[in-house]
Amino acid sequence: MENTGVTERFEGACAGCGIAIQTEDAKRPGYAPASALQRETVICQRCFRIRHYNEVAPISMGDDDFLRILDGIGSTDSLVVMVVDIFDFHGSWLRGLPRFVGNNPILLVGNKVDLLPQNINLNRVRNWMQHEAKERGLRPADVVLVSAHKGLHIDELLARISQLRKGRDVYIVGVTNVGKSTLINRILHDYGSAELEITTSPFPGTTLDKIEIPLEDGRSIFDTPGIINRDQIGHMITPQDLRKITPTTRINPKVYQLNDGQSLFLGGLARIDFVRGPRQPFVVYVKNDMYIHRTKLENADDVLQKHHGEMLAPPTGREAAEKLPAFVKHTFKIRPTGTTDLVISGLGWVSLQGKEEASVVVHAPKGVSVGIRKGLI
């Protein structure tokens, strides 16, 4: 891919998140003190606090603002790079993408491949992503697996971008927290200018407007703000608890041999009831230090009532538990058609072998997306 020729600062815009700089109102997005405008690279106060203090900074852009920014992509002649979080594929899927991209080709990028269990067949993961994309009405030109954080397979990604863009602009899109800005930073540091760094953080909504990164051939890469998928559990908990459920190291699956009439709590954020079926393994894929509690189904309601926010944490503390939406039931019949994943958006998944029919109920906070899919692993 061509070396990026990045300017030292974006004229009138924050070099971290892309929002227009303003000096009048500290409570509005884009605020920077007047003294900051004298710096060679200008960033807003929000990006400064995220970058130097890891401080949570609220945003005031609504869904319409994000959609407005993405809405013009379909009228361009460009390559669209859609980034998803492999660990949270279900929750990080950008719905309605075809109406944004028009006839432009799509390169599907699975980020955070470093979180997948060791010895996994990456070709199988690529094929699985192609299948899942097709099920959602999308036919990507190719699938590339990367780790923006670790710098894995970035060469392969850049080669495919160069082959597919054919002299066109590139738009990088995705929902919040999939690692788009981290990926852009990796490209800038390894293949372009390290003078400009896009603000990244573990909190949703960091990039507030399109950021244009000029290329040597006169075209550009555009980093776009993340659309918020509100059915991810991360939007219903505190930033502190979000850190506790967000994996940062390779997942080590945990296997529980369950009889029917038993339940598993994933902290205090979800519960899986094995209602009916033969004894079988339930393989849990969540952050490694997530507390998992097994109990009898008949006792599960009492256990939640007594221990939610304490033993069953996250959420951490009774106050956080009380603010969490009430659990609702999702009933699934697991058929003997191969491995099936029970997916809880933003938290992880539980895998069943599907050798015999089984009945399972998943309890999750109201509004969190819960579903089943063909097994990833």
Rank of each mutant, 00 (worst) to 15 (best):
Q45G: 02
G16K: 03
P365M: 06
V175A: 00
Q280D: 06
Y256R: 04
Y53L: 15
T41R: 15
Q232K: 15
E212R: 13
G167H: 10
R230K: 14
E195C: 07
N259Y: 10
L97Y: 07
L138C: 07
T206Q: 01
L342T: 03
R51K: 15
N288R: 08
D231Q: 14
R230Q: 12
G367T: 10
Q262V: 01
S345N: 10
L215C: 15
H308N: 00
F100Y: 15
R9K: 09
V42Y: 08
A141D: 09
R294L: 06
A358V: 09
E132L: 12
Y191N: 07
A326Q: 13
L208Q: 01
F203C: 00
T224H: 00
V255F: 05
P214F: 12
G371Q: 10
E195W: 10
L196Q: 11
A321V: 00
H153S: 13
W128E: 05
R271T: 02
K27H: 08
I227M: 01
T295S: 09
Q280G: 03
F87W: 13
S35A: 14
L266C: 04
H363Q: 14
F282S: 01
L196W: 02
T4I: 15
H189F: 10
D88V: 09
V368M: 11
A26P: 12
S60F: 11
R165N: 11
R186D: 05
Q38W: 12
D231S: 15
V284G: 00
D65M: 02
Q240E: 14
S181R: 04
L67Q: 02
R318H: 06
G205A: 04
A32K: 03
P202R: 02
I43P: 04
T7C: 01
A194R: 14
E55C: 05
G367L: 11
S78L: 02
A159Q: 15
G317H: 01
D273K: 04
V275H: 03
F48P: 01
R165V: 09
G234S: 08
E195A: 14
G234K: 09
I251T: 14
I292S: 03
K323A: 04
L242A: 09
F10Y: 06
N54Y: 12
A194W: 08
K287M: 03
P253S: 03
A133Q: 12
T200A: 13
Y285E: 02
